[in-house]
């Protein structure tokens, strides 16, 4: 029995637990599987078909992605002769790891957070900007024309959406007067949810995240019918699986930030007191954050069923011509709200 206790201790050992289980790798994997499965199911319902069904029809094909992952894992990883090997191998792995790193500073409850810091919003925002750079690296290292075109498109898009996202996050931290997620959530609990205080910021952030994580209609950097798979054209096997997962992981992280900044964090379930420490401090608030993030993510993936794909110049025009201005307006709105709060 001692071994079992040791094992449980090991699993619950904070560094391991944070990085591997919650809110780290396994949690994100489960989330991704659920999200991809439900994306395919919802799209299937709209598109007069079943979606995944072959594997475990009773579970409506839910383990389909497990099968896909096993296949990816067992597939040979082909590294073409002409690629720049080191960056080619490193880029998707590093991008996936760094995409998950903002979870280090995003709290899931007032007490549960891996790293306590005053500037958590700043760190999270900074970390989310790194993975797209690695996508560009992947495209460059692939030595393939389609990858190059994909990278070029991605770099155009980065310049657009990153600025919008950062401006919106800045406007919200301005509104709450803090750079700490914990205090931002507390401010929302004290006053109102951020989405009501500054709806323009919320909508702008939503669109910019869709642009940043290759959701339709902004699925431009990996437009299949034009440039095959964008920066990941040359990838195969588990590397391709990872590359596919990056955009979902990023979307999930962005949406956790969305929940913390706009949707009141652990608001409804976080206040319940049952007496059980783990239930009160981790499971209920964590669940409310995760469920909200899942709902937002589902909204984002649902656009696949409705829209086609924009051309890059249309997306850039929309990004700079409209959403950038909206981001500036959201800062103004935040200032107005702060001023009003001071007055009353």
């Amino acid at each position: 029995m001692a071994i079992v206790e040791r094992l449980i201790d090991l699993i619950l050992w904070p560094p391991l637990f944070y990085y591997i289980i919650f809110p780290g790798l396994i949690f994100v994997m489960i989330f991704e599987m659920f999200l991809i499965w439900s994306e395919r199911k919802i799209a299937g319902r709209v598109q007069m078909r079943y979606g995944p069904l072959e594997i475990a029809p009773r579970l409506a094909g839910a383990p389909q992605l497990m099968a896909d992952l096993i296949r990816y894992a067992l597939q040979e990883v082909i590294i073409p002769r002409t690629v720049d090997k080191l960056p080619f191998v490193i880029a998707p792995i590093a991008a996936f790891v760094i995409a998950l790193m903002p979870l280090l500073v995003t709290p899931f409850s007032p007490t549960f957070l891996p790293v306590t810091t005053e500037g958590s919003i700043l760190i999270a925002a900074a970390l989310t900007t790194i993975p797209p750079l690695l996508l560009i690296l992947a495209g460059w290292a692939s030595n393939n024309k389609f990858s190059l075109v994909g990278s070029a498109r991605e770099s155009f898009l980065i310049a657009t959406y990153e600025i919008i996202i950062l401006l919106v996050i800045a406007s919200m931290s301005f509104l709450y007067g803090t750079l700490d997620f914990l205090k931002a959530v507390e401010a929302q609990q004290a006053l109102l949810w951020g989405i009501i205080l500054n709806p323009i910021a919320a909508i702008t952030y939503f669109v910019a995240v869709m642009m940043g994580t290759s959701r339709f209609p902004f699925e431009i950097a990996e437009a299949e019918s034009e440039i095959v798979m964008g920066a990941f054209t040359e990838y195969s096997g588990i590397m391709f699986g990872l590359a596919m997962g990056i955009s979902y992981a990023r979307m999930f992280v962005y949406n956790i930030i969305f929940v913390l900044l706009f949707l009141g964090g652990w608001s409804p379930l976080g206040g319940i007191v049952t007496g059980n420490y783990i239930l009160d401090s981790i499971i209920l608030p964590g669940a409310s954050v995760a469920i909200k993030a899942v709902i937002i993510s589902l909204l984002m993936v649902f656009t696949r069923a409705v829209y086609g794909r924009y051309r890059i110049d249309h997306a850039l025009k929309g990004g700079w011509g409209f959403w950038f201005i909206m981001a500036l307006v959201s800062i103004g709105l935040s200032a107005a709200v702060v001023y009003l709060m001071e007055v009353f």
Binding site: A43, Q47, M48, R49, F216, E224, S225, G308, R309
Partner: peptide, 16 residues
């Protein structure tokens, strides 16, 4: 045409 434009729903509808 629809799938070339990335519109998977219309692709399925037209084929269905």
């Amino acid at each position: 045409f629809a799938i070339l434009l990335g519109h998977s729903t219309m692709y399925m509808w037209f084929f269905g």
